[in-house]
């Protein structure tokens, strides 16, 4: 879904997590919600610590900070919940992610996107599908499919 080929321009929505700006393909976004009451799932681990009620569905709420190794910067009233549809082991699954702020929808040229540096990075390389430069610093494009697949297989393996 967020595989990037050199030919395509990519429409993304940008958001902030911690101090890091991220871009998520707009086609994966279903809706943006004001903060909702979160139900903690005991022993679920830091990446998907809870679930929320999105229009009558119970949706897991993930924290990309943990998948990308971004430090916590506190939160304010700009905090939102983004509901996404991601590929989860072949099925389309609805998940929610926490965003400390949601900014804008923008189109980036495929030529602007660089692959994630393979060495010396703070982030797990297979969790990033690329990055690009913007006027206010570089923006990470997380590989949502890989990030959620990794969690699903972790969850399946843990007895």
């Amino acid at each position: 879904m967020n595989a990037i080929t050199p030919r395509d321009d990519l429409t993304v929505i940008t958001l902030t997590v911690g101090a890091q700006k991220l871009a998520i393909p707009a086609c994966a976004l279903r809706e943006i919600l004001d903060p909702l009451p979160v139900t903690r799932v005991p022993r679920a681990g830091p990446f998907v610590p809870g679930v929320v009620n999105v229009r009558g569905s119970v949706v897991p709420l993930a924290n990309l900070r943990h998948a990308l190794g971004i430090p916590d910067e506190g939160q304010d009233d700009r905090r939102r919940i983004m509901v996404l549809e991601v590929d989860l082991e072949g099925d389309l699954a609805t998940v929610a992610i926490m965003a400390d702020a949601v900014h804008e929808v923008t189109t980036i040229k495929a030529s602007q996107i660089e692959p994630a540096p393979s060495s010396a990075t703070a982030w797990p390389a297979d969790h990033i599908s690329g990055l690009y430069n913007s006027p206010d610093g570089f923006v990470l494009i997380p590989d949502l499919t890989n990030i959620f697949a990794a969690q699903a297989s972790r969850a399946a393996d843990t007895p």
Binding site: R43, V51, A155, A156, P159
Partner: peptide, 10 residues
Amino acid sequence: KQMSKLHANV
């Protein structure tokens, strides 16, 4: 409601 696969370990 079913839990997501992401919570299969719980």
